[in-house]
Design a protein around this nucleic acid. Sequence first.
DNA 1: CAGTATCCTCATGGATACTG
DNA 2: CAGTATCCATGAGGATACTG
Lengths: 111, 111
Amino acid sequence: MAVTRRPGAHECGIAAAMSVIDGKWKVSLLWTLEQRPRRFGELRRLVPGVSEKVLAAQLRELETDGIVHREVFDEVPPRVEYSLTALGQDLNAALEPLGDWGAKHLLPDSA
Amino acid sequence: MAVTRRPGAHECGIAAAMSVIDGKWKVSLLWTLEQRPRRFGELRRLVPGVSEKVLAAQLRELETDGIVHREVFDEVPPRVEYSLTALGQDLNAALEPLGDWGAKHLLPDSA
DNA sequence: CAGTATCCTCATGGATACTG
DNA sequence: CAGTATCCATGAGGATACTG
């Protein structure tokens, strides 16, 4: 997407937040990592449709934004684990109302 | 942006919600309309940078999604007013935590 | 395994002219 | 005023081959 930044009240915050979750797979990644840390290959499988290139790119952006922590284990074969930072967990929590809204009003069978 | 839909818990709701606010200017429009109904030309001015084409397009999408109400007054010169529906107001409310998160963690001077 | 490096496609949005 | 119609630019993302 890419949201526009304008001065004033909440919107700056929303725009800033949107820029962080802007990326086709980021919310999926956030949600997947909420459960537990995952390796690169796991994420590929758990988020069907992402290409390696894009997965790596979006993980790096999330890392840069302080949402995701990347830990490299010096093993053979190589192993890298991605996990949510505290900030990332907060973000996920902040997304819940939006998810609830969507589930309630947009999904076919809102429980 | 265009977020991916996958089955499971909250994410569907989030994906659905994201698809509704997906569009470069939609959140700005939402926020602008929160204050009071606005005419097309007002929105052009209040949301600097949008072209007429895109403004019209995104307003229509929001209307289709039930977020925005479009009212045509049969006057000369023509007058059309856009306002938030109840659903749109709910959406805005659901976006608040996200905005707060962004303001708190991403903006330079978080009050 | 966990990524780069390339190349390519296509949708979103920008600019502008025109109309009811 | 409130839009459409048209044409064009850009960049995010997809596919695939290759590497440390």
